[in-house]
Design a protein around this nucleic acid. Structure first.
Length: 415
RNA sequence: GGAGAGAUGGCAGAGCGGUUGAAUGCACUGGUCUUGAAAACCAGCAAGGGGGCAACUCCUUCCAGGGUUCGAAUCCCUGUCUCUCCGCCA
């Protein structure tokens, strides 16, 4: 949620900056609601004040055994008026709140304009592409079974077995231990989240169709960002404790509504996938720095796994709802002969913190924290990248050195 | 599942119908003292919002939502969560 104050102060400037995200802010609507809010609020408060004053008087009269009929009549009259102003205020406030919850985060000043991922800015390319093109992971390994998964749950699910299942597990351990080494506290968290939590991180109310709803007020988490960030919901953090860095491995559940027919083959786009997530909660002056730091942490996973990748900075049109700035890390996939997203690292500035009420106590009072998060990494896609980039072209998938202590074997035989 | 108890400021914890936005302690901030620190002492210290150029002022908030009342942290109802005991299951 953006600060309503900046809308009151200079709404045109906000409109201009949101246009970078291709979001069209309805200035007229906001201003008219805001005008109504102000009017009714002043009325409500004045009436309340009257009642407060008269109530005190009433008490005194009663104490002195004096008649109170006149005063109660007066109060009654004021209350009737108050009721109607209160109703108006409630309605107007609700509309304003809905509008506010619907406005995306303001992009960082440096964000380039652009409509789609084609306009993203290449930051760097790292690692050497050893395999220019190859068979895809399904052709290389028989231990990925999508057909049987269909039987279990439907399309866009997978069953892994034997060495591929173990490789998958080894990757999770490898990533978690690396995160721990980089100063993140490891958490095990619920895989269900309630509405409040999802509003806090920005998935709700706008993107409900992307989620799996389980019960009245419960959803399967689309990312560990939700529980990890919300660990600090409604809390005030002493600034000396910053930065707070947390990590968790969780499954992630996404309905993938609107992506019918896209990436239907293989593990690339699933309803359920594993991810190791990194989250930082930092002082507002440190968030840009923290984003670079977190990006480095995510890149390290790829480097150690000897996977070629590139980093792009998202243009305005590709930037997510809650993000002010995002770097995507894209790994080379030989079967597709292109780079595909494997991590997304974003600075959410105070957008999530304001929604989740995560504050920092400083000597000048409390302020909203900044939140940063990113995947390190999406495990399923990492699995694909390893299989395809480290396949020797004949019969073996070579396990990168850094992973061998977790996988316990130097290669996987493919039959 | 049954039976009780509870939810109050950063924390602990009083208050149980009327200057109580809330005693007290701890923490925190400023000051005195000290070579420096600690201790001691003095002072300040909840949040959110509105109006005003400003000094300032007003409103709201004691888990959430309803209700009673001129007036609710205090009484009633509902929900959520926590704790204790019993049962059941792992």
């Amino acid at each position: 949620m953006i600060d309503i104050k900046i809308l009151r102060e200079d709404i045109e400037a906000v409109k201009e900056r949101l246009s970078v995200k291709n979001y069209d802010l309805d200035v007229e609507l906001f201003l008219s609601l805001e005008r109504q809010r102000k009017e009714s609020q002043i009325q409500v408060e004045e009436h309340q004040q009257q009642i407060n004053i008269l109530s005190k008087k009433f008490g005194e009269l009663k104490k002195n055994k004096l008649p109170t009929d006149e005063i109660s009549e007066e109060i009654e009259k004021i209350k009737t008026n108050l009721d109607s102003f209160e109703t108006t205020l409630k309605v107007v406030k609700k509309s304003l709140d809905e509008i506010l919850m619907d406005i995306p985060n303001i992009p960082d000043l440096t964000i380039p304009r652009g409509d789609s991922e084609d306009d993203n800015k290449l930051i760097k390319k790292c690692g050497k592409i050893k395999v220019l093109q190859s068979q895809d992971h399904l052709e290389i390994s028989r231990d990925i079974d999508l057909e049987i998964a269909t039987k279990l749950a439907g399309s866009r699910f997978s069953v892994l077995k034997n060495d591929v299942a173990k490789l998958h597990r080894a990757l999770i351990n490898f990533m978690l231990e690396l995160a721990e080494k980089n100063g993140y506290d490891e958490y095990y968290v619920p895989f269900l989240a309630n509405t409040e939590n999802l509003e806090g991180t920005g998935q709700l109310p706008k993107f409900e169709e992307d989620l799996f709803k389980v019960d009245n007020d419960m959803y399967l988490i689309p990312t560990a960002e939700v529980p990890l960030t919300n660990l600090l919901r409604e809390s005030i953090i002493d600034e000396n404790l910053l930065p707070i860095k947390s990590t968790a491995h969780t499954p992630c559940f996404r309905s993938e509504a609107g992506s019918y027919g896209k990436d239907t083959r293989g593990l690339i786009r699933q309803h359920q996938f594993e991810k190791v997530e990194l989250v930082q909660v930092v002082h507002p002056t440190k968030s840009n720095e923290a984003l670079e730091d977190l990006l480095t942490n995510a890149e390290e996973v790829l480097t150690l796994l000897e996977l070629p990748y590139q980093v792009v900075e998202l243009c305005g049109g590709d930037l997510g709802f809650s993000a002010a700035k995002t770097y995507d890390i894209e790994v080379w996939l030989p079967s597709q002969e292109c780079y595909r997203e494997i991590s997304s690292c974003s600075n959410f500035t105070d957008f999530q913190a304001r929604r989740s009420k995560i504050k920092i106590k400083t000597s000048e009072g409390s302020i909203f924290a900044h939140t940063i998060n990113g995947s390190a990494l999406a495990v399923g896609r990492t699995l694909i990248a390893i299989i395809e980039n480290h396949f020797d072209g004949k019969s073996k998938i070579l396990i990168p050195k850094a992973l061998q202590q977790f996988f316990k074997k130097p290669f996987i035989h493919c039959v």
